[in-house]
């Protein structure tokens, strides 16, 4: 499995090589790749934690099994940027070990080169999601 650091570098470079408009197109594509919640969570929204740092309702749940982290995130269709952020974190962190996720770089939001395309204020939602994922992983490990 590619390391989180390597995946982050690759994704960051991919964004960096694009113009502002194409960065948004790529983020929208990534948003479309966010997996649907499995039925056990889709039918039990009470199990999910609300990410208060995000402007739109984002909910997440983390599972730890045999030291591997499973990440489940959901955000409404009318919040594609938030879905994009959720999908990025899912792609970077899902399936890694507890130690790897806990050691994931704190500056993921800053290394995606999205500040000009998305604005600094909006990127902070991504920070909130990352912090909450790490906290849940630490609690469940």
């Amino acid at each position: 499995m590619t390391s989180i650091e390597q995946s982050l570098n690759d994704l960051g470079s991919e964004f960096a090589e694009l113009g502002v408009k194409d960065r948004l197109t790529l983020l929208l594509e990534i948003a479309g790749e966010l997996p649907e919640l499995p039925a056990r969570y889709a039918d039990h929204p009470d199990l999910l934690e609300r990410v208060e740092e995000c402007q739109s309702p984002v909910f997440l749940f983390v599972e730890v099994e045999n030291d591997r982290v499973g990440i489940f995130l959901t955000a409404p269709e009318e919040a594609p940027t938030t879905r994009g952020f959720a999908s990025i974190l899912h792609q970077l962190l899902n399936g890694h070990t507890v130690a790897e996720v806990l050691a994931a770089p704190e500056d993921i939001p800053d290394r995606l080169h999205l500040k000009d395309a998305v604005s600094l204020l909006r990127i902070n939602g991504l920070r909130g999601m990352l912090n909450r994922i790490k906290r849940q992983v630490a609690e469940k490990a």
Binding site: L24, T25, L27, L28, S56, E78, P80, T81, S119, R122
Partner: peptide, 9 residues
């Protein structure tokens, strides 16, 4: 919009 990608959707 509040969401910067919504127009593109």
């Amino acid at each position: 919009d509040e969401d910067v990608l919504l127009y593109d959707v």
